[in-house]
Structure formats: C-alpha cells, structure tokens
C-alpha cells in the first residue's frame, strides 16, 4: 500500500517477499503432510504402525537445505539494510527532538516545526535526539525506524519519491500518551518546500506564544480548551489559586507570571496536587517564556 514512497521500500519488501514465499511453501507442504498422515495412517486404516527410528540421509537433508535457505534470508535482509546506513553526502540535515509526547523538528535556518516537511527526491538525514526517555522515530511508509536515545543521538535517512503526507509514530513506549505521539511527514515539490522553508506560510498567523507551546510539545500534556490531559489545563490557569506540593509540603500558590515561568524551567519545585511529577525542565530564553505566559493569560 505504500509502493515506492522511499528509497528503501523496494529492498525491504523484496526481502520480505522472499522469506514469505519460502515460508509459505514450507508451511503448506508441512501442514498438508501432517494432516494427510493423520488421516491416511489413522488407527482404523492402519492398525499396525511401522517402527521407523530415523533416517540419517533425511536428517542431513533437512538440516543442510534449511541451513542454506536461512543463510540466503540473512543475506537478503542484510543487503536491504545496508543502504539505510549510507547517507549520501548531499543529504540535508533536520534535527528531530522527541519529548513526552511530541516530536519537534529544527531546520538549518533555525526554523522549528511540529511536522517534518521535506522536499521530494532529496536525501534527508534526520538526526534524532530525545530529552527524557526512549522514543522511536518510525515512518512506516518509508520503512525507517530508529530508537531515540537520550544523551546518545541517532540518525535515519531517506529520500521520498512521492509527494504526500505520511504518518510518523513513536514506536517505543514512553508513557501515558505514547499512542498520541503522532505527527506527519509532508513531502512537497521542491518549490513548495522552498516557500515553506523560507516563510512561515504554513504556520499561519498564530500567536507567538501558542506556536512556542506547540513547538515545545507543551500542549500534548496541557490542553488549551479545559480538557483533562496529563498535566493541568492552561485554560483559566492564570491568576487562580492552586494547591501545590513543594518539597513534600502542601501549600497554596497563586498562578502569577513568576510561578508560571518557574514551572517551565523547574517544574519539580511546585507540583499541582493530583498530577504526577513527571514534567522535564525546559531551558528557554526569557523572551520565549514571556510570550508563552502572555498567551496562557489569554486563555480564560
């Protein structure tokens, strides 16, 4: 169903087909023999069994032949894999950062996006980083997957050969909203890509604060519409009094500018009662923090 969407699809699918065909033949033959023997030699038709203890020729045959077959399978599997590690020299580089529970992508020119946007027929190397726990970067349509290991950057590369929009999943369990950690890769024509890359066209005219909240994956845990996610909602947050736990002591605190900014840079210091203390600290410039808080103020 994903025919030819990336450089690797053909190799992977051919190796897959090779193994499946051999396996199917063996499965059908063995199942047929098994069922046939059971009926042909059932007690009523064959009252006396023949005591055959074994046959060395057969043992050798069914050791050597499967041996050769599996070695072929190994080789096809390996040959289809090696291109995935050979990144072309001219590949463009995009950095992907995973955190609970969103991906964000950073481009050469500092552009940030919550979707991966790439030009068609151009090798793209995606450098994979994780900030908190293991995630995995998985594009089924391109047959690429790689775990994202905190403190140990990894990479994948691909060259997409069809325009369109394909799923990116997180494939390594990473907590409550693991299954919501989904985004898209948009494959655009070269000219469309350039337009996107240089402008902020696709981002629309969102408030800066909202864009920052999206880029830093805040909204995957904190809703903007009052619905309950993993963390407290932003809606109506500002100016209210909240019960928090600070250093194991419960106290009340008013959500003002200072509190909100501190909660982003040092979330473990005051944790709102009823929510797990799982948020990771964020290092962001003051100007960004201010815009985020300004936007949160607007969510009444």
């Amino acid at each position: 169903m994903f025919n030819g969407t990336s450089t690797f699809v053909e190799g992977v699918d051919n190796a897959f087909l090779f193994i499946v065909v051999i396996s199917l033949i063996l499965l059908i033959v063995l199942t047929f023999l098994m069922v046939y023997f059971i009926f042909r030699y059932r007690k009523e038709r064959n009252p006396v069994a023949s005591q055959i203890e074994g046959n060395v020729t057969l043992e050798v045959l069914w050791t050597v032949i499967p041996g050769i077959l599996v070695l072929m399978m190994f080789w096809y599997g390996w040959k289809a894999y090696t291109p995935m590690r050979e990144v072309p020299e001219d590949a463009m580089v995009v950095k992907a950062v995973a955190r609970m529970w969103a991906f964000s992508f950073e481009y050469d020119n500092g552009k940030k996006s919550d979707k991966l946007v790439v030009p068609i027929n151009k090798p793209v190397k995606v450098v994979l980083e994780a900030t908190d726990v293991l995630h995995a970067f998985y594009i089924p349509a391109f047959r690429v997957k790689q775990d994202m290991v905190p403190g140990n950057p990894q990479y994948v590369w691909f060259s997409a050969s069809k325009t369109g929009s394909y799923d990116i999943f997180c494939a390594e369990y990473c907590g409550t909203l693991h299954s919501a950690m989904i985004t898209k890769v948009e494959v655009l024509e070269e000219t469309d890509y350039q337009a996107w890359y240089e402008g902020s066209a696709l981002a629309g005219d969102e408030p800066v604060g909202l864009k920052l909240l999206k880029d830093n994956a805040c909204i995957s845990c904190h809703s903007t519409d009052g619905s309950q996610l993993v963390g407290p909602t932003f809606k109506g947050l500002f100016g209210k009094t909240h019960k928090v736990v600070s250093n194991g002591v419960e106290k009340e605190i008013v959500a003002d500018d200072a509190y909100l900014m501190k909660s982003i840079t040092d979330p473990a210091s005051d944790v709102v009662v009823g929510f797990p203390a799982i948020m990771q600290p964020y290092q962001l410039p003051d100007s960004s923090l201010k815009s985020m808080v300004e936007f949160i103020k607007t969510l009444k």
């Binding site: 690797f8 992977v12 190796a15 599997g77 040959k79 289809a80 690429v144």
Partner: peptide, 10 residues
C-alpha cells in the same frame, strides 16, 4: 522475517 535486519527495522 523479523530476524532479518531490514524487515525488523520496519
């Protein structure tokens, strides 16, 4: 199938 590296990646 999944013992082979390429398919297992997928």
């Amino acid at each position: 199938i999944i013992g082979a590296v390429a398919q297992d990646i997928h």
